[in-house]
């Protein structure tokens, strides 16, 4: 699908309201999201209209029965991998409805992330192949399609022992991290990625999220943040991350 096709389908921004109210078919939603990626005005309108649904939700509050919380907390306790998997795989759809489906997709995702690590040097070509081999409805397809984008931008962050590639796409909110060589941290610490606006003097770093090593490797998908043309940096922070960098900066892009 070309940008022209997307434009033809949504000739103006009238569909923004239907998108915000989830009043589209899945196919239309996907097409609309593609157009949002290349149309800042449309994205801006959606962001504004979402403030309305956020405000509406605050007038609909209803206390749920305590049994649901018991069930949720129990499920979380019995699924200790969930948080780590969430850290690894941040490109996930919002269509998961059951724990069974969660487990199933987790298995799929493990495979795709392992592949992502293995293809660090030639990821664009390989992911292009994965995209062809993955059903279009899966989350993995979204990852593959994003990484196959020829407009991908790669920033390399390096120090004496470690290297990290930060891959971003012009039409995606994700920042894909692939690397190795950083020292393992204890449970009280984590690595945190920061985006710093290169065009603004003394710009405050904006957190893109935290990540941890898996078998010495870095394989994570975080958020690219709203910072344009950023300088990327990695610091060591207390577990859970910090609002602003407090620890040692271990990597920074040139």
């Amino acid at each position: 699908m070309t940008i022209s096709d997307i434009g033809d389908k949504f000739e103006n921004n009238d569909a923004a309201g239907a998108f915000v109210l989830n009043a589209m078919s899945p196919d239309e939603r996907e097409t609309f999201q593609q157009r949002m990626g290349v149309d800042p005005d449309l994205r801006s309108e959606v962001d504004e209209l979402r403030k309305v649904t956020e405000a509406m939700s605050l007038y609909l509050l209803e206390e749920p029965p305590p049994t649901v919380k018991d069930a949720v907390m129990s499920l979380i306790l019995s699924e200790p991998q969930l948080d780590r998997i969430a850290s690894e795989s941040t490109v996930v759809s919002e269509d998961l409805a059951t724990v069974a489906v969660l487990s199933e997709r987790r298995a799929i995702r493990r495979g795709s992330l392992a592949a992502l690590s293995a293809m660090a040097a030639a990821f664009l070509v390989i992911v292009g192949f994965v995209a062809l081999d993955t059903p279009s409805s899966t989350v993995d397809d979204q990852i593959a399609a994003a990484l196959a984008d020829p407009m991908a931008s790669v920033e390399v962050l390096q120090n004496e022992t470690g290297m990290l590639r930060v891959i971003t796409l012009p039409n995606s909110e994700d920042a894909v991290l692939v690397g190795s060589g950083l020292p393992a941290l204890d449970d009280a610490q984590t690595y945190q990625l920061w985006a710093i606006d290169s065009a603004v003097e003394d710009a405050a770093p904006v957190s893109a999220g935290t990540f941890d090593l898996s078998d010495g490797e870095i394989r994570a998908i975080l958020r690219r943040t709203s910072v344009n043309d950023p300088v990327w940096a990695v610091s060591i922070e207390p577990a859970g991350g910090s609002p602003q960098p407090t620890g040692e900066i271990v990597l920074i892009s040139a």
Binding site: L82, D83, A86, V92, L96, E173, T210, R223, V227
Partner: peptide, 15 residues
Amino acid sequence: MLELWRQAPRFDQAA
């Protein structure tokens, strides 16, 4: 709530 737990690392305050 399970989805929020799973997606928590994705949340971007700037967005």
